[in-house]
């Protein structure tokens, strides 16, 4: 099967008056359609940088990135980005927040709008369509942010620690929600997280990075029954084994 994402020999160096920071060095990575990849690594090693490069909001110093064979040079149609904060616009109601992205790149057609409406209904936000973000709980807000991303029909979802601002219990619930949505919508996703158990609960493959400049230290393939939800995975015997494995890779 052809790779959805190809990262080839990508280097990235940040320049600032005080110093030069080599964030990525000779990074190579490929991801297949339908995979759910988690990236873990020491903080400041360059995880966000990788996502920014894939999204096209940052240009590699050298090397190339391809999605479906097309070289990424600027933000485009391919990726959907979710941040740590939901970044909902407080002055727009939920419907307007969800369909925000449809206003750009000539995506504002009936088909996309009805897809947005369908997602909202399907994932339990139908009655809040005219409400404002301040009236929603943290978990619901993050779900709105996910639907806002999904209704642009991205090939690849980029999730940058999207649950770390939530309290523990909400986080477990939203992990289940998001995982279900991504599975149902048959999306490919890259999740950046510093939470090892989150990575094990949600993904099909974990990529462990070295400290900065980031290169791939190891790749751990997870083998769970595909029917299990993230929460159910946490109760599996193998969960602890995986945890220790990732932990050892990190230290």
């Amino acid at each position: 099967m052809e790779n959805l994402l190809e990262i080839q020999n990508v280097c990235l160096t940040y320049h600032s008056p005080a110093s030069e920071t080599e964030a990525l060095k000779e990074l190579n990575l490929s991801i297949k359609e339908g995979e759910f990849i988690s990236i873990v690594g020491p903080s400041g090693c360059g995880k966000t940088t990788i996502l920014s490069l894939i999204a096209g909001i940052l240009k590699p110093t050298s090397g190339n990135i391809f999605i479906r064979g097309e070289k990424i040079e600027k933000p485009g149609f391919h990726t959907g980005y979710m941040f740590q904060r939901d970044n909902l616009f407080e002055w727009l109601n939920i419907w307007k927040n969800v369909t925000l992205g449809l206003n750009f790149k000539k995506r504002n057609n009936e088909e996309n709008k009805s897809y947005a409406k369908e997602l909202i209904e399907k994932y339990g936000l139908g009655e809040f369509i005219r409400h404002y973000p301040t009236e929603l709980s943290g978990g619901m807000r993050q779900r709105v942010a996910l639907i806002r991303t999904l209704c642009l029909k991205p090939d690849l979802l980029l999730l940058d620690e999207p649950f770390s601002a939530l309290d523990y219990q909400t986080r477990l619930n939203v992990q289940d929600d998001v995982s279900l949505v991504i599975k149902k919508e048959k999306k490919t996703a890259i999740l950046v997280t510093h939470d090892i158990s989150e990575a094990i609960a949600m993904s099909s493959k974990i990529i462990v990075l070295t400290p900065r400049p980031a290169t791939i230290k190891s790749i751990i393939t997870l083998d769970f029954d595909p029917k299990l939800t993230p929460f159910e995975r946490r109760k599996e015997k193998s969960f602890n084994t995986y945890f220790n494995k990732v932990w050892e890779e990190l230290v």
Binding site: P75, Y81, F104
Partner: peptide
């Protein structure tokens, strides 16, 4: 917030749209 501007960029908003919508 910088992140909101980044979000707009990842959704393909133009500079003018970032101005008027955000």
């Amino acid at each position: 917030p910088k992140e909101k501007i980044l979000l707009m960029k990842t959704m393909g908003a133009s500079g003018f749209q970032i101005l008027t919508r955000l």
